[in-house]
Design a protein around this nucleic acid. Structure first.
Length: 366
DNA sequence: AAAGGCTGCAACCGCACTGTC
DNA sequence: AGACAGTGCGGTTGCAGCCTT
């Protein structure tokens, strides 16, 4: 029985006036919606119903168009490259499906979300680490938090969910040696304490060994953790730095910028094309309080301003070597990673490499 | 061959944000 | 300033098809 034809969902042809149909879309409905969008363009989805008689709510129309009818959608399963991008994006952003989708042309947030949730289930069942080992070691000096679940996190809407890299991002920053203030002890939402340095201590010191004295050009577009974003509603168990808050837009921009660089990195053939090394003043994460331009109030994904920066190609080892090791920070998560990796001794870096042994060749993977 | 379990995916739901009046 | 509509997002649900026993 089709979902839309179930007694519960039946609100279509036979339904009373004003009733909205639910369930799977029919080809005829698709046709109507496609034709409407072709004529009027996207947006104003509630008008679809008014103008076409389609018994679907605006949200349903939008969803159908965005996820299935858009002509630029890419069909089929994810490529290994895409899977790697998703894993990396998730490592950096957490469950920011829309932002991730914006970096994967032709893919939808729903698609990515479904893929990832499936992956989480598989890996959990198989006792495998969620992220490739190189990412575990690169992004996390401690392991990524376990996949978010409602039980663990509760409702987190607009509260800057603790994405793995958000959680760990401070570790990728060098602290200003001239600023002795203590890091702020906060919480990642899972009850795991985090060390978040005051914003004033964030710096971009990851200069290349070749130019160790020039600290204005970061190797990676690493950004202050959005945990500090003042416009975000933070969970009560997270502390903010008063007066030194980034705006949500700035934080989103930061993520988008970082994602761009990451995708760029993946596009590089063999060599890790890492960063568009920027003068800090030119980078778009700067708070609008400091720079009035470049912030139009729109969300981050549309604000991928092209930094006016020189591009550098840097060997990955350089980056790894320049990332400060937070030797004094040991969390439950770190212990967890050690245990997790120990439990999976057969999974090597090679196993995760594209082509060599894609994830879907792993045990339990189809 | 049949039954039950599992998986992938489409769609819905509720909340939050944004713009307009 | 507040109400409202429109939109976006992430979590969840339910179903069809496949797989296993």
């Amino acid at each position: 029985m089709m979902q839309g034809e179930s007694p519960k969902g039946m609100a279509g042809a036979g339904a009373g006036a004003g009733e909205l149909k639910k369930g799977p879309w029919t080809a005829a409905e698709d046709e109507i919606l496609t034709e409407y969008v072709r004529r009027h363009g996207e947006g104003n989805w509630n008008a679809v119903r008014r103008n076409t008689g389609l018994l679907r709510c605006g949200k349903s129309c939008r969803l159908r168009w965005m996820n299935h009818l858009r002509p630029d959608l890419k069909k089929g399963s994810f490529t290994p490259q895409e899977e790697l991008v998703i894993a990396r994006l998730h490592a950096q952003l957490g469950n920011k499906w829309a932002l991730m989708a914006s970096q994967l042309p032709g893919r939808t947030d729903n698609e990515i979300k479904n893929y990832w949730n499936t992956r989480v289930k598989r890996h959990r069942r198989a006792g495998l680490p969620l992220y490739p080992p190189d990412m575990q070691s690169f992004f996390f000096s401690s392991p990524p938090p376990s996949p978010t679940t409602p039980l663990q996190l509760g409702r987190q809407r607009r509260t800057v969910p603790p994405s793995p890299l958000m959680v760990e991002r401070p570790l990728l920053f060098a602290f200003s040696t001239s600023a002795p203030a203590s890091p702020i002890l906060t919480n990642n939402g899972n009850g795991v304490p985090l060390l978040v340095p005051p914003l004033s201590q964030f710096a971009f010191p990851l200069s290349t060994p070749a130019s160790p004295s020039t600290s204005t050009a970061p190797l990676l577009p690493l950004l202050p953790p959005p945990l500090l974003a003042g416009n975000h509603e933070l969970p009560s168990n997270q502390l903010v730095v008063p007066g030194e808050a980034l705006t949500a837009a700035a934080a989103a921009t930061a993520d988008a910028f970082m994602v761009d660089a990451m995708v760029e990195e993946l596009r590089g053939d063999g060599e890790l094309l890492v960063a568009e090394a920027c003068n800090v003043d030119q980078c778009s994460y700067i708070s609008p309080h400091q720079h009035g331009h470049a912030f139009d109030g729109s969300a981050g994904i549309n604000m991928k301003s092209e930094p006016q920066c020189a591009t550098e190609s840097i060997d990955a080892n350089q980056i790894l070597n320049t990332i400060p090791t937070p030797s004094t920070v040991t969390t439950d998560n770190e212990l967890g990673l050690a245990m997790q990796l120990e439990q999976c001794p057969l999974i090597t870096e090679e196993d995760w490499n594209i082509g060599a042994c894609p994830w879907n060749n792993m045990p339990g993977m189809s």
